[in-house]
Computed example of a mutant assay.
Amino acid sequence: MLGYLRLFLIVLFASGLVFAEEYNCIEHANPESGNIPIPVCRRECIGRVPDCKPNCYDKCPKHSKCVEPEKCKCDEGYVKNGPDTNMTCNPIVCPPNSQMVNDTTCKCFDGYKGDIVEMNAILQSCEPICEPSCPAHSFCASPKKCECDKGYVKNGPDTNMTCNLLVCPSNSQMVNDTTCICPDGYQKVESLQSCEPICEPSCPANSFCASPKKCKCVRGYEIDEMSDDDPTKLNHCKPVCYAECPENSVCVSPDVCKCNPGYSPITNKSGTLASCLEDSFTAFTETHIIIYSFLICSVIFTIVTVIAMIVICVRKENPAEVPDTRSWHTSFASYAEYEMNENINNNSMGKN
């Protein structure tokens, strides 16, 4: 009978070790009457062998258990927060770009590195790794990929990128500090990287779209006609000639005048139109000039001939006044020389 009792105590002691060894709550006691060790619960533990458990006088918080006297431990899947005297157990939530391992630990994905809180060794964040480091005004957005900060725009390939300050062109506005967009009434022009106003239908010739739905004449032109349906809508722009065009001409382009049909231009030395003459006065051909020149010469010759005949007739009526022209034609160069010679001869004869 005593043998069975000893065997029972040994089995009970072994089972107590199995259930209580983790908590270190069983100790061995030897009774005075014998040498067989008897397992008993420690004073700081509660319960009976083999269910001895450590005693935490301040109850452990939710999602935790008492693992040693006055020491609580969070359950798996939870993490300790705060000191032992005022701890809480919060569920483990792995940060982005990580995964949970063994329900107790978070591990970053490949290409990411993590920051760990020293107090409980829990992963707080996983940041991408960029080597070499990103340039100024940028950050590592994913492994080996940099992106510019808000308000800056990427310039160049990924391997040699820079981030320049984003300046939106005229007639545009910035959205989210990263993008420029055209407001309502404007459209983007890729070749110019700008926003231009929209005018529908399109503006007439020699004008441009100055603002949404409003056309304006270009320099050198002025408003000539507005729409009957919409007084604010431009229909036509006419050129401006600051120097007034001559009669029978019109302004065809800025500071350029042109004669009306049926008129021919007369320009000054600078090439500017001076006047416009009707074609009937200016359509002279070379034949016309020859004919008119011949007629004028004929008229002059006729007049000279008539005058000569009149002079001859007058001299025939007064022969005493007409000198002997025979010696004049043979000896003297002119009639005046002949008269002078006659006077000299007459004087010589009077002295003799």
Results as ranks from 00 to 15, higher is better:
P319Y: 09
N352V: 08
K213N: 12
I289E: 10
V250N: 15
Q99P: 00
T179I: 15
K80F: 06
T179V: 07
G82E: 07
V79M: 11
I122G: 01
E196L: 06
I266E: 13
E131V: 03
D58K: 14
P61T: 05
E70C: 11
I291C: 06
L295H: 02
V322D: 10
G271M: 06
G262M: 13
G47T: 05
D255S: 11
R42L: 05
N248V: 13
F332N: 02
D103Q: 07
E337G: 07
S275C: 03
E247L: 15
C130A: 03
C251I: 05
E21R: 02
C245K: 05
P37K: 00
V218K: 12
M1G: 14
D224V: 00
E22F: 08
S194V: 06
N345T: 11
V322A: 06
K213E: 05
P323R: 01
M174I: 14
S191H: 06
P83F: 13
P157H: 13
P265E: 14
E70G: 10
N155H: 07
T330D: 14
T105L: 10
K73Q: 15
Y221L: 04
Y78H: 10
Y4W: 14
V11N: 04
K150W: 01
C257S: 10
C45V: 12
T159S: 11
N81G: 08
A205M: 03
E70Y: 10
C130V: 11
A29D: 13
A136R: 07
I307M: 03
L7R: 07
P239Y: 03
S125K: 08
I38D: 02
N206I: 04
L234V: 00
R326D: 12
N341Y: 15
I198R: 09
S249R: 03
V218L: 09
A308M: 05
G111D: 06
P231N: 01
P69S: 15
N347W: 11
K216F: 01
P50E: 04
P231W: 00
Y338T: 03
Y242N: 09
C241Q: 03
I290C: 08
S15W: 13
I116Y: 15
A274I: 01
P323I: 04
P231E: 00
K62W: 11
L5K: 14
V153T: 14
M174E: 07
C126W: 14
M161T: 09
E127Y: 11
E127F: 11
L17V: 06
F281W: 08
S33L: 10
N260M: 15
V11P: 06
C195N: 09
D224E: 14
E286C: 06
N90C: 03
K316F: 02
R219K: 12
Y335H: 01
E196D: 15
I129F: 06
P169H: 05
S348P: 03
C41S: 06
A14R: 01
S194G: 05
G220V: 04
